[in-house]
Design a binder for these strands. Structure first.
Lengths: 135, 135
DNA sequence: ATTATAATAATAATCATTATTATTTTAAAG
DNA sequence: CTTTAAAATAATAATGATTATTATTATAAT
């Protein structure tokens, strides 16, 4: 893997942001420092970094994927009002004790997603804000 | 909500299939009984049934959404080999005890997704099969 | 400095999903 | 039974997110 300024910026952007940005948001943020970067480069590098195990990809229904630089086991919660994704500490899960359905599965990952309304949105004044506020 | 043969077929198809079919798979299955049905009708009705609480939508990274007619709390596991989605019984989760991150969240849902390799794929002979086998 | 490799920007293409619209079904009222 | 209004459909176009292509540029090893 050869160095590139673009990849470094993309990685730094995801690591330093608390919002688990979507590819689009990463694009908007990185463009401030590197206005010529292209969206394809953002997608390619995000996926590359996920494949290399340096980031993880988060999928919720009906919203585009988000990216997270925190690698330890933890969960995420999507605010249904503003669409932001937050971290949550993991509940204790006894995976060994899980009853599996169709025979034997080799489990390779566990992802716990919550949905809800975040504190900001509960506080009535920010009903319709979104990730954009972080740009 | 007015009756339609198409919606009944779509609903029956999801309910009777153990594979949590994607919209595309529902389309292929329903077309056998109603060859003139259109893909838009399938999407519209699946989403309608989700909104009405009769089905749930399942999202994993990198694969299209799947639909499930089983409504009680349970988890899902995606086979990374064949792409099928299976049911799993829920591990016990003490949601009340969860430490929340940014202040107070109103939690409205919890979705636990596993990834792994299913029994069929572990048995070496079906490395590359997919949902299509169920059509 | 030269050169092979990998990465990029720009753009086109794809895939999943949603919207539009003219036509057909449904079901309720006369 | 017809008539009629509302809702649903099929067909198709449009959108949005993501991936692929390609010619050019940057990286890093020789």
């Amino acid at each position: 893997m050869k160095y590139s300024r673009q990849r470094e910026l993309i990685y730094k952007t995801v690591m330093e942001n608390p919002i688990h940005p979507s590819a689009d948001t990463v694009y908007a943020l990185v463009r401030k420092e590197q206005p010529t970067i292209s969206l394809g480069t953002v997608y390619r590098n995000l996926n590359l970094l996920v494949r290399e195990g340096m980031l993880q990809k988060i999928s919720f229904p009906n919203v585009s994927d988000h990216f997270d630089g925190r690698l330890e086991e933890h969960c995420h919660i999507l605010c249904q009002q503003c669409g932001r994704v937050y971290d949550m500490d993991s509940p204790r899960l006894d995976i060994a004790a899980l009853q599996k359905r169709p025979g034997h599965f080799r489990i390779t990952g566990c992802h716990i997603y919550f949905t809800g309304i975040c504190e900001a949105c509960l506080k009535h004044f920010n009903q319709f804000e979104s990730e954009d506020e972080f740009l």
